[in-house]
């Protein structure tokens, strides 16, 4: 199953993850962190970046070790590898971005069970080379990061009247429902509609 190693192929892997295989709006995977952490653009961005980091590293590690892992134990082996990278991210965030860790703390360990990560390991990384898997992880991770940032930005604009923490309606409250759970579902639904409409047109 050797892929052709041209540059355009790698680029396609990345853009696929961003648009055609967008994990949030097309594959609809990883909904728990998507809905829960996108109360503001910066929270969405941080969650996306943490997932991106884990996804790239776990894709690379899994594609490297996949040939020597016996079939019957591949899931436990992958989970251990993924959990290691997640714990690494957790320790690093706790040490160097404690404020961010306080907001996202609960959801960081949950990256282990994010379907996107095990999904990419099963569907892509264990059949491809290290470099292609890194590109796939980067693409899907960027897709997830962008989706979460956009969703977070929309909810922050409507819900708190600010963007990336910068308040533009001066002292007033936004439409509070949007920073709470119902707003997450409403925004996600509308963004999904817009995204898929755009995809169909092209």
């Amino acid at each position: 199953m050797k892929e052709d190693k041209t540059m355009s192929n790698k680029l396609k892997l990345i853009t696929d993850g961003l648009v055609r295989n967008n994990p949030t709006f097309v594959l609809i995977l990883g909904m728990c962190p998507t809905l829960a952490t996108t109360t503001s653009a910066i929270n969405g961005l941080s969650m996306g970046l943490a997932t991106l980091f884990v996804l790239v590293l776990s894709n690379m590690a899994i594609s490297a070790v996949a040939p020597v892992i016996p079939d019957k134990v591949h899931i436990p082996a992958y989970i251990v590898i993924i959990a290691t990278f997640v714990t690494l991210v957790q320790l690093l965030m706790q040490a160097y971005t404690p404020a961010m860790y306080e907001t996202l703390g609960l959801f960081i360990p949950l990256i282990v069970v994010n379907c996107i990560i095990l999904g990419r390991a099963e569907a892509f990384a264990n059949k491809h080379g290290v470099l292609e898997s890194a590109c796939d992880g980067l693409g899907v991770g960027l897709g997830f990061t962008c989706s979460l940032t956009v969703l977070g930005a929309v909810r922050e604009i409507l819900g708190s009247g600010s963007i990336f923490g910068w308040n533009f309606i001066g002292g007033h409250d936004g439409m509070l429902a949007f920073v709470m759970a119902p707003g997450a579902f409403i925004c996600l639904g509308y963004l999904m509609v817009l995204f898929n409409k755009y995809l169909k047109k092209n």
């Binding site: 199953m1 070790v65 996949a66 040939p67 020597v68 892992i69 016996p70 079939d71 019957k72 134990v73 591949h74 436990p76 082996a77 251990v80 590898i81 959990a83 290691t84 264990n126 059949k127």
Partner: peptide, 22 residues
């Protein structure tokens, strides 16, 4: 594609993965 599983290689691989990760 993936190698045939037997008790020995499953134990060795899982132990190895866990040791490196720890």
């Amino acid at each position: 594609m993936a190698i045939q599983s037997n008790l020995k290689n499953m134990t060795v691989v899982l132990t190895g993965v866990c040791l490196v990760c720890s």
